[in-house]
Amino acid sequence: MSAVSRSSHLSQPSHVAFDEVSHQFEDIEQQREAYVVGMWAFLVTEIMFFGAVFLIYTVYRTLNHAAFYEAHKQLDIGLGTLNTFILLTSSLTMALAVHWAQVRNRRAQIMALTSTLGLAGAFIVVKAIEYSHKFAHHLFPGGNFVYPDASIADQARLFFSLYFGATGLHALHVVVGMLVIGAMLTRALRDRDARADYIPVEMTGLYWHFVDIVWIFLFPLLYLIPR
């Protein structure tokens, strides 16, 4: 009839710098799964966030299909494909970084994180080149938007609003991802004895793969509109 104590957080060894269990958790496994479930709950919010963008896009593309088809020809499909390739590859290197964090191969983990960071940077550079072309051609839907074919200028404006809105939000997520990956890299560089828990890297990976998934859908929706 008496309450029994399962384990006490106060008995955790205090000399372990990493791999430590926060006081509110019973053990490392509970903590790990809590973080993974929490990350997934966060990703659910991200799914709904981008999902609403996709919904808006779907509605307007269905209503103005012909105009969207014409407008999408202004996009550079080569650069879009290149960016898809870059981002998919960065997902691979991120997955490998998690793998090497799990098996505590510090050198390989640092290499994989660096590659991921480099690929993410490359993605942003390509995106910037694309954006600068659009700005140069007055295709940014601000004050001086000019579309060559005046008869569909309004719908084209809508297309480019959605293009800049969706890819801009995605690029923002890429930049945030780069900051987090950079933090993971710093953490790995400092962790000379490779004792750090892999879960932070795993969570970074989950986030990064989600960013990849968003692009997986954005690419055909924006760049590959059928006639």
Partner: peptide, 13 residues
Amino acid sequence: FHIGVFDPRYGGD
């Protein structure tokens, strides 16, 4: 930016 997403003048709904 007057992007037109919800603006009927630009085909928004």
